[in-house]
Structures are given as C-alpha cells and as structure tokens.
Design a protein around this nucleic acid. Structure first.
Length: 609
RNA sequence: GGGGCGGUAGUUGAGUUGGUUACAACAUCGGCCUGUCACGCCGAAGGUCGCGGGUUCGAGUCCCGUCCGCCCCGCCA
C-alpha cells in the first residue's frame, strides 16, 4: 500500500480545476499524457478519463521533486500533491483548448504508482495504427480519447434506456444464457454439459422465447439489455456476442410497440446527442424499399432511387434489344438506377463501378448516357433499342439530359443487392450523407409488411423470414397453406441511416394459427414438440396477445458515435475470424478437460506460423 | 464456401527492371534548455522485410504454399 495513498485522497479529476481554484492545494492522480522538459521547468500533462491538467516541476519549489521529474516517462501512473497556480501569472500562456488551460499545478509531492514500459501504440486521439496492433494491445487502445468517449456514450444510452423503459412500466428481468439447443436459424454456440454426458446447451441467440413466456406469465411489459450469441461469420457490424435492448409487451398492436420504441429512441438521441427527433418515424413497406432502393434497410438521406423496368420493357417485347428480350424470356428482372448529371464520373470511374459489380457476382453493368432529346450514348443498347422503348425507359426513371442510367439484369435478389451496393457506393463517393448537418444527418424509419416466409433454395421449403412465432397479417391466415409466399407478417424493422438497428413483430398467441404456420414450414408434430414443445404448452393456458422488438445496442452506439466498426464500441471485441487478439481466445483445451465434458475433438492439429 | 486489399525498425509508411551497408517520419535512449502545450536543439540506437519452400551468382522485390488482419458476397429465423 502506497504511503501517498494512505495519506491523500484524490481531491479533483483532471478536467475540473480553473482559475476559481487558484491557491488551493489539490491531489490529482492519473497518467502522464505528455512531457515537456525545459531544464529549469518540467511540464507534464496529467490525464484521466475526464481530461488533462498541466502540472509543473520547479527547482525553486522543490529541488528534489524537480530532479525526480526528469525520470518521468509517458504513461506512468502517478499521483501528485500541489498548488493551483495561474499560468499567465507564472510567466506562461493559457491553453484555450483545455478546460483547465488557465491553470497549472505546482507540484509539492510526487508519487509514482507504476512506471510504464514504452507503449507499443501512441496514446493519442488520432492514431493510424493497424487494428491488429490495437486489438493486441487493447488496454492501451482503450486509454485513447475516442474509445473512452465511445464507452461514455454507450453508458449514457444504456442508462437512458433503463430510465425510459422503467418510466413506461417495463420490468427488467434476466433470462438464461445457457439455453436449449434448437437447430435452424442462426448457428448456435454449443456448450457441453458435464453433468449430462452427450448433451449440450446452446448460448442464447436472443431471449426471444423466454420473453414471450414472460408475457404468458403475466409480466405484461419486460425489457432487458441482453447479451446474445450467434456463431455466424463476422462483419464490421456483426460480432459473435453482442447486446440487444430487448423488450416485449402484452395486449398490443404494432403501433403500440413502435410508439414505445420511438419514445425510447428519441430519449436516447436527446440524452446522448442532444438531438430532438421528430415523431412518429416514417413508415415504408418492405416491397417499396426493395423496389426503390434494393434494400430492406435503405438510407433515406439521399436519392439515387431505382426503377424496376421489367414490365416497361416487356411492353415493347424487349424494344429490339436481343439481351433485353432474352432476359425477359428467362423470367428475370430488369432494373435501373438513374445517376443525375451533377454526379459526374469519367469513363474510368464508371468502369470501376463495373469492377465492383463483378466483385459482387454480377455479370456486368449496363449503362446509357442520356443526351438531348433522350438519345443514348456510351451504351451497348443505344444502336438497337427502339425509340419508343428508350423513351419509355427514360420516362420511367425520370431521366434528364446528362444523366447516366445504370442497368442490372438477373434474379431479383441479386439485381436488388447489386444496385443497392452501387447506390451506397456512389453516395459514399459523392459524400451525399456525410455532408449533412443537424437533424438532416439522421434518418429513422420503420420498414413494415415483410413477407412471413422466405423461399429457401437449398431445401426448396419455406422458412420463417423473421421467426416462426411471428403473426401473419389479418386476413392472410387462410393463405398460410395455399399460398405461403404471399403472406405478409406483422413484423417491423427500425432503420437508422441505412442500418437495421431493430426488429420485431406481433407474435402468434393463438395455437390454431401457430399450427398452420408450422404446417407451412413443413414441420412435423414430433419436430415442433421436440423444438418448441415448452412454448406450445404455454400457449395453451391463456396466452395474451403480445409483441415486441429488439434494438441492436452495439450498432446504435456505433452509429451515434460515428464509429466505423462495432469493434470500436465493444470493449473487448473479436476479429473477423472470431479470435480475441488480447487473450488469444479461443484456445485448444487438453484432452482430459474434453473428456470431463464427454467430447472428443475431430479437428486436425494446426501449426501456427 | 467465394472475391478483394494488406503484412518492411516500437508505430505508420517508402523501397524502381531482382544488384553496395533496406530509407523516412514519429516514438525510444543520451545530452542541453526557466514557460512549454505537435516544445526546441545536438547526438545515438533500433530490422528473422509475417512464416516455410523454390527459382537465381544474388530475392523485401519473381514463383508456390501457409499464417494473420481488414472489406465484401453467401450466411446472420
């Protein structure tokens, strides 16, 4: 135990002292952010999570302390006792960039708690160190201002969430992390059970079924800031363990859930960002999103809308363009995006767009430059297309002189995906969203009317688009068996600046409807009982109508902090390969540990470089 | 499962057609400096060019394999 600590308590943090404190004796503790040694004056910027304070060592104050100060180095953790003095009166100048910039602490006593080896990264706001080095040295990385601020904001958001949902009558209840393994959907992390040889838990993908059962238990309004685990491939915005603001409500319709979420998000924006959002948020149907933006989470802060041309061109039987004709004959989609003339691109730049299309798996990029009178140039279709078809296309996409029309042909899913990628690519290139200020910089909207099922190409079956407990829309129940592909769901996603930050639905509370949905999913009685028997059982005893939603907390924090990766808002994140460079996890475990949990590894031994 | 980019002092980068002792900035270390706050000045040290193999008189550079990081498609009910 340090003598210094037993005699002194920290009196202030490094961001509070001002001229109002002149003459006070204070105790500060923190890290050495930087050093400036002038021989007879030794300056140290002392840093803690709150800010910086300059401390100064002067030989006339204390010869010995001044001499010791020469030994100090960056990132040492120290404590000091000293007197608040006026920088200007001391013959220096104030630093207007610091809250504490008008004062400095004349050091009377110095305590070194712990020296620091030379840090492998610089502790500065703007570093260009590779992410690999940063993750390997995460403790030092986390000392940096931007990450410290990200976690402050994350804390504010979590607290605003608790306060708001508490005020709205929600109960915060925890659910298990070790849960029943259910195949289908996201891949589960699997945990062997030592006490039950050959059996396994899964780590919870989400508290979905538990929260529904809370409703059946009568808790009425539940929320949780819940850890979730999914063993899928990682992305910049996907980590294998992540956090959801999870909520569920009884006796509600879509607009009730959406209203709660809108008020919650508005409160988060107000408390964390001091931004007043306008309520309610816009609503767009899934079909509309896909047609106009090629995405179920479009960024609505800019245009670059798409137009489906399949029917337009079919009216002209391909308009004399053999490729159009063969595309139509194959039953494929033709879609275009108009790039207005103010977004100027050279030939080389449009060629680069085509490279992007090919990287995404597209065959190529159809183009047409629109001239006077709607004539096309720089286009493989220009010479053969009929005037009528060309004009109809121009009209359909609202083309004006100087515009560029980009075409995609093929399966709808891929056509949408590629044009959506081009749209976001061009928006980035021309900085369409980045330059927006104030409220214009934020776009929130609901996407509604999702299909209840998706067609799974692998199995040929229908699979639940959201999850199998999502309620079909009213009047659609009869189509569940006859035409499942046409059934819309009572599901809704919340989109922020082109990111899906939340999703939810009104659930099925009627076991007859639930049975039909399982039928449409081609699920046998044994299968439903084995997987979801506990839920079906609960549905038999007075299940209330209910619905809810989950917000991806990490993603929300990422967007609000302006971070470009989830890794900057999760304290100890995983790399794209799912490893933790700080601790080295995951690691092999020895065979006797495996034996204890009754499993045997089939992995081949890896040799590390 | 697939496509793309990258790995060179502690850190970030440069390194030509394969050719002396692999270069710069910042950081580090030593010295000087009484008003700095991107302090300044003088000096020094610092390298298994991710790893393994091959071609060659000679490889950071060319070829093959492999490991690692990042971005994207698939995947993520």
């Amino acid at each position: 135990m340090s003598e210094f600590l037993s005699q002194h308590k920290r009196s202030h943090n490094c961001n509070t002292l001002t001229k109002a404190d002149l003459g006070r004796e204070v105790i500060l503790m923190g890290w050495i952010d930087s050093l400036r040694d002038h021989g007879g004056r030794r300056f140290v910027d002392l840093r803690d999570r709150y800010g910086l304070t300059q401390i100064v060592f002067k030989p006339e104050t204390d010869e010995a302390q001044h001499a010791r100060a020469q030994e100090l180095r960056n990132e040492w953790c120290i404590g000091i006792r000293g007197v608040v003095e006026d920088r200007t009166a001391n013959g220096g100048s104030a630093n207007p960039r610091l809250t504490t910039g008008e004062i400095e602490i004349n050091v009377l006593e110095l305590e070194v708690f712990n020296k620091s080896a030379v840090p492998p990264l610089q502790i500065e706001d703007n570093i260009d160190t590779s992410e690999e080095k940063r993750l390997q040295n995460r403790v030092l990385d986390l000392r940096r201002g931007p990450l410290q601020r990200n976690f402050h904001l994350r804390h504010r958001i979590a607290q605003a969430t608790r306060a708001q949902l508490d005020e709205e009558g929600f109960l915060e209840i925890e659910t298990p992390i070790l849960v029943k393994y259910t195949p289908g959907g996201a891949r589960n992390f699997v945990v062997p059970s030592r006490l039950n040889p050959g059996s396994f838990y899964a780590l919870a993908e989400s508290p979905q079924l538990y929260k529904q059962m809370f409703m059946m238990a009568g808790f009425d309004r539940y929320f949780q800031i819940a850890k979730c685990f999914r063993d899928e491939d990682l992305r910049g915005d996907r980590q294998p363990e992540f956090t959801q603001i999870d909520l569920e409500m009884s006796f509600v319709q879509e607009e009730d859930v959406q209203g709660v979420v809108e008020r919650l998000v508005a409160r988060i924006f107000k408390e964390a960002m001091n931004i007043d959002l306008q309520l309610p948020f816009k609503r767009m149907s899934y079909a509309d999103c896909m047609a106009r933006y090629g995405s179920d989470k479009p960024d609505l802060r800019y245009g670059l809308e798409h137009t489906i041309l399949t029917n337009v061109i079919a009216d002209f039987d391909g308009g004399g363009v053999p490729f159009f004709k063969s595309t139509l004959d194959d039953g494929l989609m033709i879609k275009a995006m108009r790039v207005p003339s103010e977004y100027k691109m050279s030939r080389a730049e449009t060629d680069k767009l085509e490279d992007l299309v090919k990287q995404l798996g597209g065959a190529g990029l159809g183009r047409a430059k629109v001239g006077d009178d709607g004539a096309w140039s720089q286009s493989p279709f220009a010479k053969v297309i009929s005037d009528e078809c060309r004009l109809a296309i121009n009209q359909a996409v609202s083309a004006e002189t100087g515009d560029l029309i980009l075409f995609q042909f093929g399966k709808p899913k891929q056509v949408h995906m590629i044009l959506a990628a081009l749209r976001t690519h061009l928006a980035k290139k021309f900085e369409l969203a980045k330059t927006l200020k104030g409220n214009d910089a934020w776009s929130l909207h609901w996407v509604t009317d999702f299909p209840l099922f998706e067609h799974d190409e692998e199995s040929g079956n229908h699979v639940a688009a959201h999850h199998p407990f999502t309620s079909p829309q009213k009047g659609h129940e009869d189509n569940l068996v006859s035409d499942p592909g046409s059934v819309l769901a009572r599901a809704y996603d919340l989109v922020l600046n082109g990111n899906e930050i939340g999703g939810g639905s009104i659930r099925i509370h009627d076991d007859q409807v639930q049975a039909k949905v399982f039928d449409a999913l081609a699920m046998s009685d044994e299968e439903k009982q084995a997987k979801f028997g506990f839920l079906l059982e609960a549905l038999r005893y007075g299940a209330p109508p209910h619905g809810g939603l989950a917000i991806g907390l990490d993603r929300l924090v990422m967007i609000l902090t302006g971070a470009t990766s989830l890794r900057d808002v999760i304290a100890y994140p995983k790399t794209q390969r799912g490893t933790d460079l700080l601790t080295g996890a995951p690691t092999p475990v020895d065979t006797h540990q495996l034996k204890e949990v009754h499993i045997l590894s089939t992995a081949e031994k890896k040799t590390n470089a």
